[in-house]
Protein backbone atom coordinates (compact mmCIF):
# COMPACT_ATOMS: atom_id res chain seq x y z
CA UNK A 1 0.00 0.00 0.00
CA UNK A 2 1.29 3.45 -0.95
CA UNK A 3 1.24 6.73 0.92
CA UNK A 4 -1.17 9.16 -0.74
CA UNK A 5 0.35 11.74 -3.06
CA UNK A 6 -0.48 14.57 -0.67
CA UNK A 7 0.94 12.87 2.41
CA UNK A 8 3.61 14.49 4.57
CA UNK A 9 5.26 12.98 7.61
CA UNK A 10 4.84 14.81 10.89
CA UNK A 11 6.04 14.18 14.39
CA UNK A 12 2.59 12.71 15.08
CA UNK A 13 2.64 10.18 12.26
CA UNK A 14 6.24 9.17 12.98
CA UNK A 15 5.34 8.83 16.65
CA UNK A 16 2.42 6.63 15.71
CA UNK A 17 4.69 4.42 13.63
CA UNK A 18 7.19 4.19 16.46
CA UNK A 19 4.37 3.19 18.82
CA UNK A 20 2.62 0.77 16.51
CA UNK A 21 3.08 0.21 12.76
CA UNK A 22 -0.50 -1.08 12.54
CA UNK A 23 -1.82 2.23 13.89
CA UNK A 24 0.22 4.06 11.26
CA UNK A 25 -1.24 1.87 8.55
CA UNK A 26 -4.84 2.35 9.66
CA UNK A 27 -4.58 6.09 10.24
CA UNK A 28 -2.39 7.28 7.37
CA UNK A 29 -2.41 4.61 4.70
CA UNK A 30 -5.99 3.45 4.94
CA UNK A 31 -7.21 6.78 6.36
CA UNK A 32 -9.68 4.94 8.50
CA UNK A 33 -11.68 7.10 10.88
CA UNK A 34 -12.67 5.17 13.93
CA UNK A 35 -14.92 6.64 16.59
CA UNK A 36 -14.02 4.43 19.58
CA UNK A 37 -13.08 6.32 22.75
CA UNK A 38 -9.48 7.16 23.65
CA UNK A 39 -10.19 7.19 27.40
CA UNK A 40 -13.10 6.06 29.51
CA UNK A 41 -13.81 9.56 30.86
CA UNK A 42 -14.73 10.91 27.47
CA UNK A 43 -16.17 14.26 28.51
CA UNK A 44 -13.21 15.09 30.78
CA UNK A 45 -10.89 14.25 27.93
CA UNK A 46 -12.85 16.37 25.51
CA UNK A 47 -12.97 19.36 27.86
CA UNK A 48 -9.23 19.13 28.42
CA UNK A 49 -8.43 18.97 24.71
CA UNK A 50 -10.74 21.87 23.93
CA UNK A 51 -9.22 23.99 26.64
CA UNK A 52 -5.74 23.30 25.30
CA UNK A 53 -6.87 24.22 21.79
CA UNK A 54 -8.47 27.41 23.01
CA UNK A 55 -5.28 28.37 24.83
CA UNK A 56 -3.22 27.90 21.67
CA UNK A 57 -5.76 29.93 19.73
CA UNK A 58 -5.57 32.78 22.23
CA UNK A 59 -1.83 33.09 21.80
CA UNK A 60 -2.16 32.97 18.05
CA UNK A 61 -4.78 35.74 18.15
CA UNK A 62 -2.61 37.84 20.39
CA UNK A 63 0.46 37.44 18.21
CA UNK A 64 -1.60 38.48 15.19
CA UNK A 65 -2.54 41.74 16.82
CA UNK A 66 -5.54 41.21 19.09
CA UNK A 67 -4.83 43.12 22.33
CA UNK A 68 -4.24 40.98 25.42
CA UNK A 69 -6.82 42.83 27.55
CA UNK A 70 -9.54 42.19 25.00
CA UNK A 71 -8.72 38.49 24.95
CA UNK A 72 -8.53 38.35 28.73
CA UNK A 73 -12.13 39.61 28.97
CA UNK A 74 -13.31 36.46 27.24
CA UNK A 75 -11.75 34.31 29.97
CA UNK A 76 -13.89 35.52 32.85
CA UNK A 77 -15.60 32.16 33.27
CA UNK A 78 -12.50 29.97 33.22
CA UNK A 79 -9.96 30.46 35.99
CA UNK A 80 -7.60 27.75 34.82
CA UNK A 81 -7.42 29.05 31.27
CA UNK A 82 -6.95 32.59 32.53
CA UNK A 83 -4.07 31.42 34.72
CA UNK A 84 -2.38 29.67 31.76
CA UNK A 85 -2.85 32.79 29.68
CA UNK A 86 -1.36 35.08 32.29
CA UNK A 87 1.63 32.79 32.76
CA UNK A 88 2.19 32.57 29.01
CA UNK A 89 2.17 36.34 28.74
CA UNK A 90 4.32 36.99 31.79
CA UNK A 91 6.86 34.20 31.42
CA UNK A 92 6.46 32.44 28.09
CA UNK A 93 7.55 35.29 25.86
CA UNK A 94 10.36 36.58 28.04
CA UNK A 95 13.69 37.22 26.40
CA UNK A 96 12.70 35.93 23.00
CA UNK A 97 13.98 37.40 19.73
CA UNK A 98 11.74 40.14 18.39
CA UNK A 99 10.48 38.63 15.14
CA UNK A 100 7.70 36.29 16.15
CA UNK A 101 5.66 34.02 13.96
CA UNK A 102 2.67 32.23 15.43
CA UNK A 103 1.33 28.95 14.05
CA UNK A 104 3.93 28.69 11.31
CA UNK A 105 4.37 25.53 9.26
CA UNK A 106 7.64 24.52 7.63
CA UNK A 107 8.17 21.68 5.18
CA UNK A 108 11.29 19.82 4.23
CA UNK A 109 12.22 16.81 2.11
CA UNK A 110 13.78 13.74 3.58
CA UNK A 111 14.55 10.38 1.99
CA UNK A 112 12.16 11.05 -0.86
CA UNK A 113 9.31 12.08 1.42
CA UNK A 114 7.94 15.32 2.83
CA UNK A 115 8.43 16.18 6.48
CA UNK A 116 6.31 18.87 8.08
CA UNK A 117 6.39 20.72 11.39
CA UNK A 118 3.75 23.10 12.68
CA UNK A 119 5.13 25.45 15.29
CA UNK A 120 3.18 27.23 18.01
CA UNK A 121 5.68 30.06 17.87
CA UNK A 122 8.97 30.77 16.14
CA UNK A 123 11.01 33.68 17.49
CA UNK A 124 13.90 34.63 15.27
CA UNK A 125 16.62 37.21 14.96
CA UNK A 126 18.40 37.09 11.59
CA UNK A 127 21.97 36.17 12.42
CA UNK A 128 20.96 35.57 16.01
CA UNK A 129 18.87 33.04 17.89
CA UNK A 130 16.09 30.94 16.39
CA UNK A 131 13.82 29.77 19.19
CA UNK A 132 10.98 27.28 18.90
CA UNK A 133 8.34 27.74 21.58
CA UNK A 134 5.94 24.89 22.22
CA UNK A 135 3.18 25.55 24.73
CA UNK A 136 2.26 22.65 26.95
CA UNK A 137 -0.76 22.61 29.23
CA UNK A 138 -0.06 19.35 31.04
CA UNK A 139 0.57 19.80 34.74
CA UNK A 140 3.26 17.13 35.02
CA UNK A 141 6.75 17.87 33.76
CA UNK A 142 8.13 14.91 31.83
CA UNK A 143 11.65 13.65 32.37
CA UNK A 144 14.13 15.74 30.48
CA UNK A 145 15.62 12.68 28.83
CA UNK A 146 12.22 11.51 27.60
CA UNK A 147 11.48 14.92 26.17
CA UNK A 148 14.86 15.11 24.42
CA UNK A 149 14.13 11.80 22.77
CA UNK A 150 10.58 12.72 21.89
CA UNK A 151 9.74 12.73 18.19
CA UNK A 152 8.51 16.31 18.42
CA UNK A 153 11.88 17.54 19.67
CA UNK A 154 13.64 15.64 16.91
CA UNK A 155 11.37 16.73 14.05
CA UNK A 156 10.84 20.38 15.05
CA UNK A 157 14.49 21.24 15.40
CA UNK A 158 15.50 19.29 12.31
CA UNK A 159 12.84 20.88 10.09
CA UNK A 160 13.68 24.39 11.28
CA UNK A 161 17.36 23.79 10.58
CA UNK A 162 16.70 22.36 7.13
CA UNK A 163 13.78 24.52 5.96
CA UNK A 164 13.99 27.76 7.93
CA UNK A 165 16.51 29.64 5.75
CA UNK A 166 13.92 31.85 4.12
CA UNK A 167 12.36 33.13 7.31
CA UNK A 168 15.75 33.49 8.99
CA UNK A 169 17.35 35.31 6.09
CA UNK A 170 19.90 32.59 5.32
CA UNK A 171 20.82 29.08 6.44
CA UNK A 172 20.35 28.65 10.19
CA UNK A 173 23.41 27.22 11.93
CA UNK A 174 22.02 24.42 14.13
CA UNK A 175 23.82 25.92 17.13
CA UNK A 176 21.54 28.98 16.86
CA UNK A 177 18.45 26.83 17.29
CA UNK A 178 16.78 26.11 20.60
CA UNK A 179 13.50 24.43 21.41
CA UNK A 180 11.68 25.52 24.57
CA UNK A 181 8.75 23.62 26.00
CA UNK A 182 6.81 26.02 28.22
CA UNK A 183 4.56 24.31 30.77
CA UNK A 184 1.95 26.93 31.62
CA UNK A 185 0.08 24.67 34.03
CA UNK A 186 3.33 24.12 35.92
CA UNK A 187 3.97 27.78 36.63
CA UNK A 188 5.59 28.44 33.27
CA UNK A 189 8.42 25.95 33.79
CA UNK A 190 10.63 25.93 30.72
CA UNK A 191 12.58 22.96 29.44
CA UNK A 192 15.09 24.06 26.81
CA UNK A 193 16.80 21.91 24.22
CA UNK A 194 19.64 23.51 22.29
CA UNK A 195 20.67 22.07 18.94
CA UNK A 196 23.98 21.27 17.27
CA UNK A 197 25.32 20.08 13.95
CA UNK A 198 26.14 16.70 15.47
CA UNK A 199 22.61 16.35 16.84
CA UNK A 200 21.17 17.36 13.49
CA UNK A 201 23.20 14.68 11.76
CA UNK A 202 22.04 12.09 14.27
CA UNK A 203 18.43 13.24 13.86
CA UNK A 204 18.69 13.06 10.10
CA UNK A 205 19.93 9.49 10.32
CA UNK A 206 17.17 8.52 12.70
CA UNK A 207 14.44 10.17 10.61
CA UNK A 208 15.81 8.83 7.35
CA UNK A 209 15.86 5.33 8.75
CA UNK A 210 12.29 5.62 9.96
CA UNK A 211 10.94 7.09 6.74
CA UNK A 212 12.90 4.53 4.73
CA UNK A 213 11.53 1.69 6.84
CA UNK A 214 7.97 2.90 6.34
CA UNK A 215 8.49 3.35 2.63
CA UNK A 216 9.86 -0.15 2.27
CA UNK A 217 7.45 -1.85 4.64
CA UNK A 218 5.39 -4.66 3.18
CA UNK A 219 3.58 -5.24 6.47
CA UNK A 220 2.60 -3.07 9.38
CA UNK A 221 2.54 -5.36 12.41
CA UNK A 222 0.59 -4.68 15.55
CA UNK A 223 2.77 -3.63 18.47
CA UNK A 224 3.54 -6.35 20.96
CA UNK A 225 3.47 -3.86 23.83
CA UNK A 226 -0.22 -3.81 24.76
CA UNK A 227 0.27 -0.79 27.02
CA UNK A 228 0.49 1.28 23.86
CA UNK A 229 -3.04 0.26 22.94
CA UNK A 230 -4.64 1.81 26.02
CA UNK A 231 -5.31 5.17 24.38
CA UNK A 232 -5.53 4.01 20.80
CA UNK A 233 -8.97 4.31 19.25
CA UNK A 234 -8.29 1.29 16.99
CA UNK A 235 -8.22 -1.01 20.02
CA UNK A 236 -11.37 -2.86 19.02
CA UNK A 237 -10.11 -3.26 15.47
CA UNK A 238 -7.14 -5.15 16.89
CA UNK A 239 -8.99 -6.84 19.77
CA UNK A 240 -6.83 -5.13 22.33
CA UNK A 241 -8.77 -4.44 25.51
CA UNK A 242 -10.61 -1.44 26.89
CA UNK A 243 -10.14 2.33 26.83
CA UNK A 244 -7.51 3.75 29.19
CA UNK A 245 -7.90 6.09 32.13
CA UNK A 246 -8.03 9.85 31.74
CA UNK A 247 -5.56 10.39 34.55
CA UNK A 248 -2.90 8.35 32.79
CA UNK A 249 -3.25 10.09 29.46
CA UNK A 250 -0.37 12.23 28.18
CA UNK A 251 -1.93 15.42 26.85
CA UNK A 252 1.39 16.60 25.49
CA UNK A 253 0.78 14.33 22.50
CA UNK A 254 -2.80 15.35 21.92
CA UNK A 255 -1.92 19.03 21.95
CA UNK A 256 0.00 18.69 18.74
CA UNK A 257 -2.96 17.15 16.96
CA UNK A 258 -4.93 20.21 16.01
CA UNK A 259 -7.54 18.11 14.23
CA UNK A 260 -8.42 16.28 17.42
CA UNK A 261 -12.12 16.88 17.97
CA UNK A 262 -12.32 19.81 15.58
CA UNK A 263 -14.97 19.86 12.89
CA UNK A 264 -13.02 20.78 9.79
CA UNK A 265 -15.25 23.15 7.83
CA UNK A 266 -12.89 22.87 4.87
CA UNK A 267 -13.99 19.28 4.56
CA UNK A 268 -17.62 20.14 4.17
CA UNK A 269 -18.60 20.71 0.58
CA UNK A 270 -21.32 23.03 -0.54
CA UNK A 271 -24.28 21.22 -1.99
CA UNK A 272 -27.46 22.04 -3.78
CA UNK A 273 -30.60 21.68 -1.73
Amino acid sequence: MKLSADFAFTQGSLGDYADCPRRFELRYLRRMRYPALEVRQALDYEARIRKGQRFHKLLQQHLLGVPADLLARSLADDDELRAWWEIALSKGLDGLPRERRAETTLESSLAGQRLLAKYDLLALEPGGEAVIIDWKTGARLPLRKALANRMQTVVYRYVLASAGAQIYGGPIPPERIRMDYVYVAAGGARLSFPYSAAQMEADETRLTDMVGAIDAAAEFPLTEDERRCRFCNYRSYCDRGEAGDFNDFDFDDAEEDEDALALDFDQIAEIEF
Binding site: D6, Q61, L64, G65, L106, E107, S109, R114, F265
Partner: peptide, 28 residues
Protein backbone atom coordinates in the same frame (compact mmCIF):
# COMPACT_ATOMS: atom_id res chain seq x y z
CA UNK B 1 3.55 20.72 -3.29
CA UNK B 2 4.03 17.44 -1.47
CA UNK B 3 6.13 15.87 -4.21
CA UNK B 4 9.38 14.45 -2.80
CA UNK B 5 11.57 16.78 -4.84
CA UNK B 6 9.70 19.73 -3.43
CA UNK B 7 10.98 22.91 -1.87
CA UNK B 8 12.12 23.54 1.68
CA UNK B 9 10.34 26.32 3.49
CA UNK B 10 6.97 27.59 4.65
CA UNK B 11 3.54 26.50 3.58
CA UNK B 12 1.49 27.76 0.65
CA UNK B 13 -2.03 28.67 1.77
CA UNK B 14 -5.00 27.16 -0.05
CA UNK B 15 -8.38 28.73 0.60
CA UNK B 16 -11.90 29.12 -0.59
CA UNK B 17 -13.86 32.24 0.26
CA UNK B 18 -15.64 30.26 2.95
CA UNK B 19 -12.54 28.84 4.60
CA UNK B 20 -10.69 32.14 4.54
CA UNK B 21 -13.68 34.07 5.90
CA UNK B 22 -14.16 31.61 8.72
CA UNK B 23 -10.46 31.61 9.63
CA UNK B 24 -10.26 35.40 9.65
CA UNK B 25 -13.48 35.96 11.57
CA UNK B 26 -12.44 33.40 14.17
CA UNK B 27 -8.99 34.98 14.58
CA UNK B 28 -10.11 38.59 14.81
Amino acid sequence: LRAPSGYHGGQVAIHTLGSLSLRMVETF
